[in-house]
Design a protein around this nucleic acid. Structure first.
Lengths: 226, 226
DNA sequence: GTCCCGCGCAAGGAAACCGTCAAGATCGCC
DNA sequence: GGCGATCTTGACGGTTTCCTTGCGCGGGAC
């Protein structure tokens, strides 16, 4: 889950952002001045920062510089002033985007998504560790506890990937078949049994008694971590 | 040196940008419509793209999508229309920034610098050492362990470069073909086999048993370091 | 106890994929 | 125009992977 730090002294805007961001599954941190903003930044390491340039206690540029001194998290600047010199300055000292007030909430959210997308692949939890084996989603690799890599066929990998992306949750047979084989194969539950057995043979310590690739009879499968 | 592709049908703006960007040591490519823009993109692989949404031949959104299909280069959108829905749509299909005309040249340049700065760290890993050979991305050279340089043809180099930029991660056949030969060659997997064999002959200690240029059957290839 | 359905397991043929070699076709340079 | 390097294209064998089928087991319904 992506976490966002909002630094702004307008409590109305802060509330609006908190509501909108929370509703979209962001974790939201807030601060109403530069000093506490930097403190929260240092303590919680949010993935993205939204900062107003018109803060009561510090120059907004100093806030940006203070963050950029040690973090590369995307910074989106909000400002009531739209003059070019200030935009250029803010961008040049490390801001990633600059939005002039008043702005539409949808635009800000879209710019936030764009920033998230850029950092996405790196911080999006590419590694899933379930105890007896480890799945690296970014590099498409699986290794047993102990480091020994496991060779998976493309279909095996796709199946495991879908399960890993829903780690802990139940995934219905229909959902799995649709994602791996396509919408036309929704009823070929046979395929699932065959490939699930192969995955268990390759990954489970005791394939007959799976500890992680669990069957939910009549429903589907679940990837369980310790 | 950073190269920029500008796609816009206003020749006056095109000229102004060419002058300003050249003066700041960017390499400038230009195109006046979507089709030729995508062609230049595929041929020259510029680092950053600036694209006007109001092109004569194509919907700007299709241009963005056409680029995002195979490239992660930053895209800055220019548009005469500033309505929020269009901004949101452009950003969501892959644009990195959205600037409304008329805009100040200094602001655009600052946003360009911000985009450049972002791609810097990722592509700025000049040397990749995999054990038996060393790839210098900046100077486009390869040398065996021991220092003996290896001559690669342009295509061989491009292929190796894509793999090196994803060092350790799996790169799908489609991705490789798109980046090296262009989006139209997605299914010519034959090329890959031929050139991968040539790379192995030139770089691997035992070409028949590759240790670094690995095949992942059915999925793609991976550059593995020791 | 018996039937029936869902699940796990094994095996084999068809199809897809990969590596290799080598012969045109193309391009750029002299 | 000729030459060399590079890029395409074709053919072939070996291997892997996928799909399909059949069978046995076990739990729940009746």
């Amino acid at each position: 889950m992506t976490s966002v730090l909002v630094i702004d002294d307008e409590t109305a805007l802060l509330r609006a952002l908190r509501i909108n961001l929370s509703a979209r599954d962001y974790t939201v941190h807030t601060a109403t001045d530069g000093v506490s903003g930097l403190a929260v930044m240092a303590r919680d390491h949010p993935d993205i920062v939204i900062v107003d340039l018109g803060l009561p206690d510090m120059d907004g540029a100093d806030v940006i510089a203070g963050i950029r001194g040690w973090s590369t998290a995307p910074i989106i600047v909000l400002s009531a002033r739209g003059d070019e010199a200030q935009k250029v300055h803010a961008l040049d000292i490390g801001a990633d985007d600059y939005v002039t007030k008043p702005f539409g909430m949808n635009e800000l959210l879209a710019r936030l998504r764009a920033a998230t997308r850029r950092i996405g692949p790196t911080t999006d939890e590419p590694v899933v560790d379930v105890g007896d084996f480890v799945i690296d989603l970014a590099s498409k690799r699986v290794a047993l506890r102990g480091g020994e890599p496991v060779r998976l066929t493309p279909t095996e990998w796709q199946l495991l990937e879908v399960l890993a992306r829903h780690r802990g949750r139940l995934v219905t047979s229909r959902q799995l078949l649709q994602q791996v084989w396509g919408p036309a194969y929704e009823s070929e539950t046979h395929y699932l049994r065959v490939y699930m057995a192969q995955l268990r043979r390759k990954l489970e310590p005791d394939p007959a008694r799976p500890r992680h690739l669990l069957t939910e009879p009549g429903m589907g499968y679940r990837l369980q971590d310790d």
